[in-house]
């Protein structure tokens, strides 16, 4: 891949999705675009550049952007975080929202939906504690095809075996055609999937008590990270919780959150009365290097 072709594709990823590729990631772009190029009978990256330039808002351009954004995800990714969600975060939110009896969770950059459904399975296990509550999980991703796929709750053998204990497979899934497994309707109905871009305001999604935005900020530059965190803060209720990916942090990026009980990568949006300028510890602002969605 020529330098100008790398610049074109990395520029497209930045403009459309906020993703930043380092100059030494030529091989990453080449491998991610190989199938798109093949599908469109492009013999070299230059032909793919031409196709995108000819129709910047067309299907090929969309396919290119989708391919540039990694989609690796699995059920209960970073199991320790889900344990904290179950044992610490959700009980706290339950107390905070006990009058409204309403709980809203946002899985941002949800890819194929395993994170959102993992939350749904946890909430289903809390059914007795949450009896009478209105529960809604909103899951969004820039990739329309993934969002449509995620809504079906269908996963292949490899997907249902990564992170998902066999007892949960038996409890929450049923067999489907072509050796696939499908989540039970009661779990699927807890999650609303929508196409949405983290670069744009999320005001139409409503306010949330918990936001999971894991393993995506690391793909943005510092400016994109700060702007995204600012938008996420704007959609969190007072006392709401933001969960980032393993190794990700907000140091030097925003002062709109407070650390939550000393847990790495977990932050709270303080209530209005608590909102004071809190100096952030100096340190590397960039979260983990992973560009995979949660």
């Amino acid at each position: 891949m020529k330098r100008e072709e790398f610049d074109f594709f990395s520029g497209l990823a930045k403009q459309r999705a906020g993703y930043v590729f380092a100059p030494d990631q030529v091989y990453v772009i080449e491998s991610r675009l190989a199938r798109v190029a093949q599908r469109n009978q492009c013999r070299d990256p230059g032909q793919l550049v031409d196709l995108v330039r000819r129709a910047p808002d067309g299907d090929v351009a969309r396919d290119v952007v989708d391919a540039l954004i990694a989609k690796d995800t699995y059920f209960f990714r970073h199991a320790e975080m889900f344990r904290r969600l179950r044992e610490t975060i959700l009980p706290r939110i339950q107390i905070q929202r006990t009058e409204q009896r309403k709980l809203r969770v946002w899985s941002a950059a949800c890819a194929t939906g395993q994170e959102a459904y993992s939350v749904a399975m946890i909430l289903d296990q809390m059914a007795i504690e949450l009896a009478g509550w209105s529960i809604e999980i909103v899951a969004t991703d820039l990739n329309r095809k993934l969002v449509e796929r995620a809504a079906k709750g269908l996963y292949n053998r490899f997907e249902v075996q990564r992170g998902l204990p066999v007892r949960m497979l038996l409890k929450f899934f049923g067999e489907a055609a072509d050796e696939q497994w499908q989540l039970a309707e009661r779990i699927r109905s807890m999650v609303t999937f929508r196409e949405a871009n983290l670069l744009q305001p999320a005001t139409d999604l409503g306010a949330f008590d918990v936001i999971l935005c894991r393993n995506v900020l690391g793909s943005f530059d510092a400016e994109g990270q700060a702007a995204t965190l600012d938008r996420l803060a704007g959609t969190l209720n007072d006392g709401g919780i933001l969960i980032l990916g393993d190794g990700e942090n907000i140091a030097g990026l925003t002062e709109r959150f407070l650390p939550f009980e000393g847990l790495d990568g977990i932050y709270m949006r303080p209530a209005a009365a608590q909102r004071v300028s809190t100096p952030q510890a100096p340190g590397a602002a960039a979260p983990g290097a992973s560009q995979a969605s949660a």
Partner: peptide, 13 residues
């Protein structure tokens, strides 16, 4: 329970 075919990610998990 591991369903074949599997890969090393599944095995580890």
């Amino acid at each position: 329970y591991i369903m074949k075919p599997f890969d090393s990610d599944v095995f580890d998990s």
